[in-house]
């Protein structure tokens, strides 16, 4: 890899942090489905006006959809983009794929994991189970097959994938970039070790002693920059802090489904504003109520 990041203080602003993401970059997004997505960083990326991204990862939702809707993405290489049965298909992603403005090179979770592992290990490719007989390889001319030199088995083979930048969000981290995450980590650790640049946002910047006591999931030496962004995963969850905001996600899906002026209005109201304004508008604070009781927790999902 390109080496560790040894600065003692990597604190910066959202704007400076996302300046690491250049037009056309291969971008990894941390978290999964509607949990711990790096949304404050994604919103800053939209404000920055980045274009031509190739986004890679496993199962995602509003992060990818918002970037696609804002015109930031050229190629999408995730294993899933959507809002599950609750809010349905991802509107901007779907519109882009169906109109041809977005190239979807759909991947699969194990394939993505294997490609990141190859990058981490410094090998050019790895074999992976499955894929043969499916249509996914038709979307990936860069994938191939390999015959095992020991058993003669034919296996799918996939190239190493080292993202240019990974955006991660964590509940807590320190100034050097040590991050503590709650499980599931999804691919965050793999992104952290395989990517050239790792930009992290944290709900709370805390002392190194506090992160160490909680347990360091991603070590500072693989992190390039860290930004404090309270409710930085909102409207997705970041436990133990806050549950996901079903009301806001539904508002997003409605705006993205309508597209055009409705989507622009969403961007103006929630994305092209200061994060503090965003937090106030969305009432993110109420989502901390999940921990009061099972009843209150359930209410957040009704």
């Amino acid at each position: 890899m390109t080496g560790f990041h040894l600065a003692a203080d990597k604190r910066t602003t959202l704007e400076e942090a996302v300046a690491h993401v250049r037009d056309g970059a291969t971008l990894a997004l941390g978290g999964g489905l509607a949990a711990r997505l790096p949304m404050a960083l994604v919103r800053a990326l939209v404000r920055q006006g980045t274009t031509g991204l190739r986004v890679v990862g496993s199962a995602h939702s509003i992060d990818v959809d918002l970037l696609v809707g804002a015109g930031a993405v050229a190629v999408c290489e995730e294993s899933y983009v959507g809002f599950e049965q609750d809010l349905g298909l991802a509107p901007a992603f779907r519109r882009g794929a169906e109109s041809g403005s977005l190239v979807v090179r759909e991947s699969s979770c194990v394939t993505m994991l294997t490609q990141l592992r190859a990058a981490e290990m410094g090998v050019p490719f790895l074999p992976v189970r499955g894929l043969l007989g499916t249509d996914l390889p038709t979307l990936h001319p860069e994938w191939g097959t390999v015959t095992c030199p020991f058993t003669g088995q034919l296996l799918a083979a996939v190239p190493a994938l080292a993202p240019d930048v990974a955006l991660l969000h964590a509940p807590i981290g320190d100034a050097a970039g040590n991050l503590h995450l709650d499980q599931p980590y999804v691919l965050d650790e793999r992104f952290a070790h395989a990517s050239r640049v790792v930009v992290a946002s944290v709900d709370r910047l805390v002392s190194t002693a506090e992160v160490a006591a909680a347990g360091v999931t991603v070590p500072a030496h693989v992190v390039t920059a860290v930004v404090e962004a309270p409710f930085g995963a909102h409207p997705t969850s970041c436990y133990p802090g806050y549950a996901y905001d079903r009301t806001h996600l539904a508002e997003y899906v409605k705006a993205a489904s309508a597209g055009g002026d409705a989507f622009e209005a969403y961007l103006d109201r929630y994305v092209r504003v200061e994060e503090q304004t965003y937090r106030d508008l969305t009432g993110a604070e109420r989502l901390t109520a999940w921990s009061a009781s099972d009843e209150q927790w359930q209410e957040l999902f009704r």
Binding site: S108, V110, R129, G130
Partner: peptide, 26 residues
Amino acid sequence: VTAIGGMPHPKIKLGGGGGGANISAT
């Protein structure tokens, strides 16, 4: 679980298959 109408020109782009293309094999 990828696309009604097939790829690369889907009629309806579905969400995608997660890890199924690998582990449905194993």
